[in-house]
Design a protein around this nucleic acid. Structure first.
Length: 431
RNA sequence: GGAGAGAUGGUCGAGUUGGAUGAAGGCACCGGUCUUGAAAACCGGCGAGGGUGCAAGCCCUCCGCGGGUUCGAAUCCCGCUCUCUCCGCCA
């Protein structure tokens, strides 16, 4: 949610900045309605003041034994008028809120305008392997080594689900451990939140109402529903909703491990078969609540952390600065960490680091009190995957494969691999 | 699933025969006195949102959420949500 005062004072500037992300908006009508609403509100407040004043006199008149019947009659009329006005003001306010809710965040000035095609590559780490007939794709690799059981995953649940098993499950878990320990070392607090959230969490996170249909909804009969979280960000954003934090507890640095549940409705492209896109995948999510003046630095920190995790695995990757139109609606700026998938000859996102500025904080009413002035102000919120595994494993098995179809486990994961250093193909008929 | 109790400001907690009070008191926090320093003690300050104003200020709204009764609701009535206790069930 944008600051209405800011829009009021700088409508032109806001429109221009939003245009950078391809969002066309004209505030003329909105501001007219806003002025009308405020005038109406002001008028009604004066009526209320009058009512309060006169009502307060009644007990005194009563005490002196005076007659109050004409007072109550005129006050009843006044009250009725106030009630009518209230309904109108509420309606205007509701319309205004709805309008504001539909406006995406203002993109940061230091990111390119336009859509996906304007994304910029910030840096590249490692040398992408050339196409090679000998390179096996991850689907073949994880099946031949028995790391993933696609068939039985589908049997249990349906298309888009798989089972990590044996060395595959161990590797998956080792990755998560590797991430967890890195964040603990950096002083982040670990969270294991509920996976089922209420409607309001989806709203504050910025996903609802637009993406209501992209999550798995759990309906209990009411209008509002609970849902399986599509990312731990949705939980972490809401932890401090409706709270006023004190300045000295900022920045708050959290991370959470959860599976992420997404409908991913729509057809799968053939090249995305495998683990690239599933209905359920594991992810460790980093999150920070900061003072406004610290969010830029926090953003850099999150990007650095995400990239360093991939680097630690020794996997070829790059960092992209997303163009305004490619950032999700609630975000001012997003950098993606993308990992090289040799069989597909493309980079795929394994982490998306974003800063929301105060956009989410306004929706969730997340504030802090400044120590110097004693005033409250909105926090800034930032989030970043650190990391999602579902694209790491494909990249890992492909980048770490040997000519015999075995996979060398990266050094950093060994402490959690129960002695497995090389994952070898199963014998024929052993699947 | 059944029965009962409750929801007040950062926190604890008064206030429920409707009116003088955004709300006693304690704690926390901030400023000051005292002290070599700290603690203690004492004095003072201390909710949020909105409107208006250069400002001091003034006004409106908010006692879980939504509605109702009333000239007037934290207080009465209805609905909802959540929490707690007891019973039942049980991975």
């Amino acid at each position: 949610m944008l600051d209405i005062v800011y829009i009021r004072n700088n409508p032109q500037e806001v429109s221009e900045k939003l245009a950078r992300r391809g969002f066309d908006i004209d505030f003329t009508e909105f501001l007219e309605a806003d002025a009308k609403r405020r005038a109406m509100m002001h008028e009604n407040e004066e009526l209320k003041a009058e009512r309060n004043r006169k009502s307060a006199e009644i007990p005194m008149i009563k005490k002196e034994g005076g007659d109050i019947s004409q007072w109550t009659e005129s006050l009843r009329q006044l009250s009725d008028r106030i009630k009518e006005n209230d309904i109108m003001v509420n309606k205007m306010t509701e319309e205004q809120q709805e309008f504001l809710r539909g406006i995406p965040n203002i993109p940061a000035d230091d990111i390119p305008a336009g859509g996906k095609e304007n994304n910029e590559i910030v840096s590249v780490w490692g040398e992408p392997m050339p196409v090679d007939a000998a390179v096996k794709n991850h689907v073949d690799l994880v099946e031949s080594t028995g790391m993933i059981d696609y068939e039985r995953g589908v049997k249990l649940s349906g298309s888009g689900y798989w089972i990590y098993r044996g060395a595959g499950a161990v590797l998956e878990w080792a990755l998560l451990n590797y991430f967890v320990y890195d964040h603990l070392n950096d002083g982040y607090e670990m969270m294991l939140p509920p996976h089922i959230l209420n409607y309001s969490c989806g709203y504050v996170g910025g996903q609802f109402p637009k993406f209501e249909d992209d999550v798995f909804q759990l309906r209990g009969g009411g209008d509002e529903f609970q849902f399986l979280l599509p990312t731990a960000e949705t939980a972490l954003t809401n932890i401090h909703a409706d709270e006023i934090l004190s300045e000295d507890e900022l920045p708050k640095k959290y991370f959470a491990y959860t599976p992420c549940y997404r409908k991913e409705a729509g057809s799968y492209r053939a090249e995305e078969r495998g683990m690239i896109r599933g209905h359920q995948f594991n992810k460790v999510e980093m999150f920070q609540y900061t003072r406004p003046e610290d969010s830029e630095e926090a953003f850099e920190e999150l990007v650095r952390k995400a990239a360093r995790l991939v680097e630690g695995l020794g996997l070829v990757h790059r960092i992209s600065r997303l163009a305004a139109g490619d950032c999700s609606a609630g975000m001012r700026k997003t950098y993606d960490i993308e990992i090289w998938i040799p069989s597909m000859q493309i980079y795929k996102e394994v982490s998306s680091v974003s800063t929301a500025g105060d956009y989410q904080a306004r929706r969730g009413n997340i504030r802090y009190r400044r120590a110097d002035t004693g005033k409250v102000d909105f926090c800034h919120t930032l989030n970043g995957s650190g990391l999602a595994t579902s694209r790491i494993i494909p990249a890992l098995v492909e980048q770490c494969q040997q000519s015999d179809g075995s996979i060398v486990v990266p050094e950093v994961l060994r402490p959690w691999m129960h002695g497995i250093e090389i994952i070898r193909p199963l014998a024929e008929g052993n699947v």
